[in-house]
Design a protein around this nucleic acid. Structure first.
Length: 472
RNA sequence: GUCCCCAUCGUCUAGCGGUUAGGACACCGCCCUUUCACGGCGGUAACCGGGGUUCAAGUCCCCGUGGGGACGCCA
């Protein structure tokens, strides 16, 4: 009989800062693995370090997960709610003889490490209290796990392959602080076991913790989950992306105008690929992704490629979906789009010329609000002595248009060109500055159709006056 | 320093013993063009070094080198 365990993965950040890119990627891998196996994905907040954990960070993580769209089936679970359970396990370990009280002081430990470093050795606990038999009643003490001394620990890593670490390299780690609170390595083990996590997917900065955790799991007589350690993401400087350089909050990517889906897409392709495909829908990600195919090597974050991916989304996503995400930027930029053309149509006209939602929002103001000044460079370049007459000619023709649409607008522009014996290049740019205030826009017929006849005529009138005065 | 991981164009990657070493981003040309873009076409550009194994090595093994990570009463 084969028992099929429900796949369960988790993302377990510590709330000591914002949710950053590296975290999002491991969360994505975990989420993907759970979703493609019809399993569960857990969000667990590892807040045992009460000194550094903050509510703001918890909120930021939840907000980030929400924005990026990685939904979880359980959680957020807070480790601080589970202290009783950890204590229980620590006591069990103590009773079993797999843990012991240690009375070494911090100063002693520091001196020990310093000496080891000076001796070109790997700093680790020397086991002084290992067999001292302290009961932990009198002096302030911590509790350490009694790590096996001999043999190797094998990790069959889904990404890295087989990793072997000799127990000689490990020391007896602290599982309970002197104030009685449990530490990370103990809590992860207990939680992953209790919660039935089948696949531990995390950053490879945890590889060194894994053998210790495996030893503890074994001491508890538990069955091991599968491990998958994803490589770090490096910054442009070749150093691991950290809060210090580059690894900004995911929310900053929203602020800069990226689609959550585009960020996810980029992150997915960073270290993983499927044939020559670059763009993956959510469903494709879920069905195509294989944790085993994740590259073992660290990769460098490349903003330009991310920008390109984002551009692809702007170019192809249904306008309604763009609107959903664009709204935040419209609000952010204080642009009210209720008085003007349908946002849908504006998006269609502009989607090919914006790489980010922020850019998009910033470039469509003239459809909804009148501008008070012309772009300096553009007006200088395109408003010439002949301009007033050209614009007046256009104005006269546009005034008579009864059906204001792109084709009719273009026809009038063409008529002016012919009448004045001018090329489009002499007419178009000035007209553009006149009706948009700027030097760039979609083609004029479409742009003006969107701006609307009344607004276009008013602006043209103003531009005629402005340029007449200028060249008077 | 010790241990662990990693190594193909500048970057992300394909390659799983026999390939003109493929794709994407970026970059550079050309075309399109009323602006800004989009787009189309083309181009530059890589197997870290040295030893093995093999008829044959980017692909397997070893040693260097380089990069990353870990070495807390942080997670």
């Amino acid at each position: 009989m084969i028992i099929i365990m429900t796949v369960k993965t988790r993302f377990a950040p510590s709330p000591t800062g914002y949710l950053h890119i590296g975290g999002v990627r491991t969360a994505l891998y975990s989420w993907l693995h759970a979703r493609q196996n019809k399993g569960n994905f857990i969000l667990r907040i590892e807040d045992t370090d009460r000194e550094r954990s903050t509510q703001e960070s918890v909120d930021a993580i939840i907000e980030g997960m929400d924005w990026i769209g990685l939904d979880y089936d359980e959680g957020p679970i807070f480790q601080t709610d589970r202290f009783d359970r950890y204590t229980e396990v620590i006591n069990q370990l103590l009773e079993q003889g797999d843990a012991y009280h240690c009375e070494c002081t911090r100063d002693e430990l520091d001196a020990m490490r310093e000496a080891q470093r000076a001796n070109k050795e790997k700093p680790r606990y020397n086991g002084k209290c290992r067999d001292a038999g302290h009961n932990g009643n009198d002096i302030e003490s911590v509790i350490r796990f009694r790590n096996p001394v001999d043999g190797d620990v094998l990790i069959d890593d889904l990404i890295k392959g087989q990793i072997t670490i000799n127990n000689r390299e490990l020391d007896d780690l602290i599982i309970a602080r002197s104030d009685g609170t449990p530490t990370y390595n103990l809590t992860v083990v207990v939680d992953d076991l209790d919660m039935g996590v089948t696949h531990v997917i995390r950053g490879d900065d945890h590889i060194n913790n894994t053998p210790r955790q495996i030893n503890m799991m074994k001491a508890l007589g538990a069955e091991l989950p599968q491990f998958a350690h994803a490589p770090m993401i490096l910054g442009g400087d070749g150093k691991r992306l950290s809060k210090r350089h580059g690894a900004v909050s995911v929310m900053q990517y929203r602020d800069e105008g990226y689609f959550p889906q585009a960020l996810l897409n980029y992150l997915l392709r960073l270290g993983w690929s499927h044939e020559d495909q670059e763009i993956f829908s959510r469903d494709e990600m879920i069905s195509l992704f294989k944790i085993e195919n994740v590259n073992g090597a660290p990769s460098t974050f490349n903003t330009k490629k991310l920008l390109w991916v984002n551009e692809q989304y702007i170019k192809t996503l249904p306008a309604v979906e763009i609107t959903e995400h664009l709204q935040w930027h419209l609000d952010d930029q204080d642009l009210d789009v209720s008085n003007g053309p349908a946002l849908h149509d504006v998006i269609e006209a502009h989607r090919d010329r914006a790489k980010t939602l922020k850019e998009l929002a910033a470039s469509i103001g003239y459809y909804y609000e009148d501008f008070s000044e012309y772009d300096e460079k553009a007006s200088k370049k395109h408003f010439k002595t002949a301009t007033p007459d050209i614009l007046q000619n256009l104005l006269d023709k546009f005034s008579k248009v009864s059906d204001w649409n792109a084709a009719n607008i273009q026809a009038e522009i063409n008529a002016t060109c012919e009448e004045l014996e001018l090329g489009m290049g002499k007419v178009g740019p000035a007209l553009r500055v006149a009706v948009t205030g700027s030097g760039m826009s979609p083609s004029l017929d479409i742009t003006m159709a969107l701006i609307g006849q009344q607004r276009s005529l008013q602006r043209l009138q103003k531009a005629v006056e402005f340029t007449r005065q200028k060249y008077a």
